[in-house]
Design a protein around this nucleic acid. Structure first.
Lengths: 302, 302
DNA sequence: AGCATTTATACTAAAGCGATATAAATCGGG
DNA sequence: CCCGATTTATATCGCTTTAGTATAAATGCT
């Protein structure tokens, strides 16, 4: 059972050209080795494929059947090679993305859209999870990349789990304030300016980002008065629009926009809303590599 | 593009055994050439298939995909080889049989049934044609074998058309006669006994066999009185049963049987109803070879 | 840290493959 | 009917590839 694809290619050339010499020419080899390979193929199959004399040339019934089968096989081989290469380049597969709620209005969703257009044969899914759950999901290989706001500090854990973490998007926090509020007329404000304003914030139990913002206020010198929590940024903006208070939000959230709400940058020491990406380094995830290249084309490949 | 099935077999062994050394053992080769072939495969694909260290063993995503593809390809190769061999042995294909009307009640139909049970993957069709049309059909490769009663005499024509002809079934003609006829009580009769009986015969224009029978009567010393022609043997027997006359028929036709009709052998010089088979000798018709072996198992193959 | 196991490297021998030269076979033309 | 032309088969040579032996490197476990 040592029949070779090369022999099938040779056979197909002879069968199509209906001549050993012409086929040899087409295959860029000389005629004797071609005859030998065909004879070897015939003896390994135990089947005569050509009824050949020096002058007439005819395929046997079995030979005719082999023409179809052989070109099928060679085609399948070509397709297999292509597919494997595409998989290796991350051009086919799936990407499961974890993301914290506060980043849903950042650049990630549009990034995924771009990814989809560049790699149409990769299907992706987006999973809203808190950082801890994302870390667990990464370890359990339930997601391929995770996005959350603070880096996990323990480098050893990351190394053990074959994970790598990078800062992937840096933005400042700004103040969302009602357009009729006196401060709304300024170009930019200080964090302390809103010390006495009632503060609206995302749910403190769902995510750790709001807690980080409160810490920033404390660092700036005041303890904010939490007037209300909301689970969605839209709700928050609606309340700001209704004049119930002010809110601290990543700049990208201003893209959503809301009637009656203005977004003011913070002049000195604005809290930063950094987004970190965490992903497997197992070299076993070509789709992740492809995604990272989209995300950060400057950086050289892993 | 010189990726070989051997490399795929090697790869599959390694992937399944999850170890180079065990795979080498299974393949009955030593380990270094196996490593080299895998490395060659990887470099030809341009794709890493294993994430291997000396201690851990893991397939890459592309490697996992190749496992399925490779076993598909190897399986298809095995199936192709089997199919080609079966075609060569005449175990798959089709057989188009020409037959003259007078032989339809002979052994050919039951022979085809036997052929069907032994070669279930060969489909056959039976075409009732006169000898001349059959010869044309053979030349035009519209049928694969033909059955008729007299040999075509011209050997050169046969050779030119790559045809061979053999006597395949020899039988005597007998007399079908009404059971109440005085002759019916005898064990066997002479051809001249029916010289004065009205004779019923198959249509003289449709086939040459009836004309041959009349010649036999003339040779025996009398000119028969043709009372009626019929196109089917059944009609003939019905008329004999009705006492309208006697008929000359091949012995095998007596199998049909008919109420009120007895069949009497002819004692001296019975006309013979020989059946000849004609078929291609192009060695290109494995199904024909298989059929001939069923027909005449004693004879060595072509 | 050392041992055991597994994979990679170095080198050698043999087998396979292709190229050139040439023989055998067959068809067409004189 | 034979000769030349063309096509396939055979013989031999040389190179490439492949498998085998010996050995080194690497890694997990005790």
């Amino acid at each position: 059972m040592s029949i070779d694809l090369k022999q099938l290619r040779y056979f197909l050339a002879v069968a199509e050209e209906k001549s050993f010499s012409r086929a040899a020419e087409r295959l860029h080899i000389s005629q004797p080795p071609l005859s030998q390979q065909i004879m070897k193929l015939e003896s390994e199959l135990g089947v005569k494929l050509f009824a050949r004399t020096t002058r007439t040339f005819e395929l046997t019934v079995a030979g005719k059947a082999l023409m179809g089968e052989a070109s099928d096989l060679l085609g399948k081989m070509r397709m297999t090679i292509d597919t494997i290469r595409q998989i290796d380049r991350g051009e086919v597969g799936r990407l499961r993305v974890g993301i914290v709620g506060s980043a849903m209005w950042g650049p990630i969703p549009s990034l995924l859209e771009e990814f989809q257009t560049k790699f149409p044969r990769v299907s992706w899914t987006l999973h809203e999870l808190g950082p801890t759950l994302q870390y667990e999901a990464l370890r359990a290989k339930q997601i391929d990349v995770g996005f959350w706001r603070e880096p996990k500090l323990d480098e050893d854990d990351l190394k053990n789990d074959n994970l790598r973490q990078e800062l992937c998007f840096r933005e400042d926090v700004c103040v969302a304030i009602n357009e009729h509020h006196p401060l709304a007329k300024q170009e930019a404000i200080e964090l302390t300016d809103i010390a006495d304003e009632p503060m609206l914030t995302l749910a403190l139990d769902k995510s750790s980002f709001p807690r980080y913002l409160i810490q920033c206020c404390v660092k700036a010198g005041f303890q904010p008065t939490i007037f209300q929590e909301a689970s969605e940024p839209q709700t928050l903006l609606a309340m700001v629009g209704a004049g119930l208070g002010v809110a601290l939000l990543p700049e990208t959230t201003s893209r959503i926009g809301w009637p009656g709400v203005v977004f003011l940058p913070i002049r000195t020491n604005p809290p930063s809303a950094n987004l970190y990406i965490t992903y497997t380094t197992l070299d076993d995830a070509p789709v992740v590599r492809a995604f990272l290249n989209i995300l950060n084309p400057v950086k050289p490949g892993v």
